[in-house]
Design a protein around this nucleic acid. Structure first.
Length: 327
DNA sequence: CATCATCA
DNA sequence: TGATGATGG
């Protein structure tokens, strides 16, 4: 879910042209959840191969990345590492909702209510180890690099933008702004070019609100993050009001007292996140033959489609120098 | 979600 | 040619 900052920050509207030639650090778990929840049939059944393995995520990765690369962007995927103990409540709550949704999905199917079935099926999506492994394998075959975060994927991606190794983070969550990512892209989907491709520049966000990065972190904490419960009935607007009134610290103190949480730990998690600083990024030549075995032979994809889609990946091969590298 | 076929 | 709905795996 992430921190709900939407009500106080205005996105810039951009198009793909703006992202051409840019390295985009994509939050892998965030993206995989989107694919798994939305790439489904009308009754909510995900795409599957003959053996019953879920393949929705492979479909999403294949087609979206081919398009991203064709448009001249350079994607890197960032996978979550070990999640913080502070996130335990959030993780537990999500699992509960998932399990509940799975039951409701089956109930809806028995009642032949397809709309409800689809709704609850999408909420029941979960990332199994097989899904994560097969996603990494496909990225590899496409020549797209991925990195394992030490902790939170968003923290790692944000660090990489700060270092200049990526130009922006792509994630649906606003948490990256708390982690200090200079640039964040939302809604990076193929059909987002007309209208809803959102762009946030942290520096401009802070300037416009006239607050510091630390203020933003504290506001996020008052609203509630994956790592702490927020103050009751405090959303983005109220938190911003507190910032303007100079009441952030007293509100944090109140939160600590009322909910018995150590907020210093949460602030530290955002300011000094656990990140992997030793990573390398390299785009490789796509392995089309191997991909055909993996996707078509093993997972039932159409050969024509895979061949056609892989032909869009040519730009990625860093051994093939592009024009700008020559000058 | 992304692609494809179809229809105006 | 672009909007719409079914299909993909």
């Amino acid at each position: 879910m992430g921190v709900k900052l939407k009500d106080i920050i205005e996105p810039e509207s951009i198009n793909f042209k703006y992202l051409e030639g840019r390295t985009i650090a994509i939050d892998a778990f965030n993206t995989l959840y989107q694919f798994l929840s939305s790439i489904r049939q009308r009754d909510g059944t995900p795409l599957m191969d003959y053996d019953g393995n879920i393949t929705s995520h492979l479909s999403g990765i294949l087609y979206r990345n081919a398009s991203i690369v064709e448009k001249g962007m350079k994607p890197i995927y960032i996978f979550d590492g070990k999640s913080s103990q502070l996130k335990k409540n959030t993780v537990d709550k999500r699992r509960e909702i998932r399990d509940e949704s799975e039951k409701k999905w089956k109930e809806a199917l028995e009642n032949h209510d397809m709309a409800q079935a689809k709704k609850y099926a999408s909420r029941s999506a979960k990332l199994s180890p097989e899904i994560i492994e097969s996603s990494k394998k496909l990225l590899d075959l496409m020549g797209i690099p991925y990195i394992e975060a030490a902790g939170e994927g968003e923290a790692q991606a944000s660090y990489m933008v700060q270092k200049g190794d990526a130009w922006a983070v792509s994630s649906q969550d606003y948490d990256c702004l708390l982690f200090g990512a200079n640039r964040v892209v939302r809604n990076l989907t193929i059909n987002s070019n007309l209208g809803n491709l959102e762009f946030y520049e942290l520096k401009k966000v802070l300037e416009k609100l006239a607050i510091s990065q630390e203020d933003l972190i504290k506001m996020g904490i008052l609203i509630g993050t994956d790592f702490n419960e927020g103050l009751y009935r405090v959303g983005a607007k109220t938190a911003f009001k507190y910032a303007k009134q100079g009441k952030l610290d007293e509100s944090i103190a109140k939160l600590e007292k009322e909910t018995n949480q150590n907020i210093d730990e949460v602030i530290d998690l955002f300011k000094n996140p656990n990140v992997n600083k030793d990573y390398k990024i390299k785009w490789n030549k796509p392995k089309t033959e191997e991909a055909l075995i993996f996707l078509c032979d093993e997972h039932g994809f159409s050969e024509d489609r895979v061949v056609n889609t892989f032909s869009k990946l040519k730009k990625l091969d860093s051994s093939q120098k592009s024009l700008e590298d020559w000058f």
